[in-house]
Amino acid sequence: MSQALNTYTLRLADDLLILSHRLSEWCGHGPILEEDIALTNRALDHLGEARNLLTYAGQAIGKSEDELAYGRMERWYTNVKLVEQPNGDYAHTIVRSFLFDAYHLPLAEGLTRSTDAQLAAIAAKAVKEATYHLRHSSEWLVRFGDGTAESHQRAHAALADLWTFTGELFETDAVGDAMVKAGVAPEMAAIKAAWNNTVDTVLAQATLERPVDGFMATGGRKGLHTEHLGFILADMQHVTRAYPGASW
């Protein structure tokens, strides 16, 4: 496995692992039972995909999935900042997932045709689940946007808050370019086009206005994060740090 492929695989894994952790924070706190179950199911799907990717990336560098998840500090995590943002109210959680799902589905579809057989196999499973995820977040976004004045306002506020984190999803750099060239990763422009299409369609249905592109946050892929990631990792890693190598 090349260095670029390793970096690329870890990026895919980190987005999913951190989003999974955020969604799992809703366990036992969902607004209704069905949603509590839905979010924990989604967290489990994301975690499953992240585990496969971490295992794959780890094989090349002699590390287990656990060592990668529990042993890396903030600066070694390369997820986009969008997924580490706090849950906020339910509209925030749904909008964050919607913006990610609209990216994750075309990405997974593209990766099913990857020249890397293992990434293609992982994506082939993920694409079916991602279809359910996008449907779930889209339905709720429409319900909020086209619901009451309050739900509309909350969805609007969440979109305005989170929009600044969407630019990072489509960033390209030497690693991404090398992966596209090698046929490992799909073209980012195609994913962006699919994302735009989904976002515009669902926002129109939800009677929500698409925010205007302004300042876009960056740095996550280089390990520069918002202050929130440190707290997530503290929560996720404290047991393995307190009892290194423990098993039960």
Binding site: E35, I37, D45, Y132, R135
Partner: peptide, 13 residues
């Protein structure tokens, strides 16, 4: 359908 996500990952409600 009540919810696309049920008691386990493979089930809907």
């Amino acid at each position: 359908m009540l919810s696309a996500f049920g008691s386990t990952a493979c089930k809907a409600l």
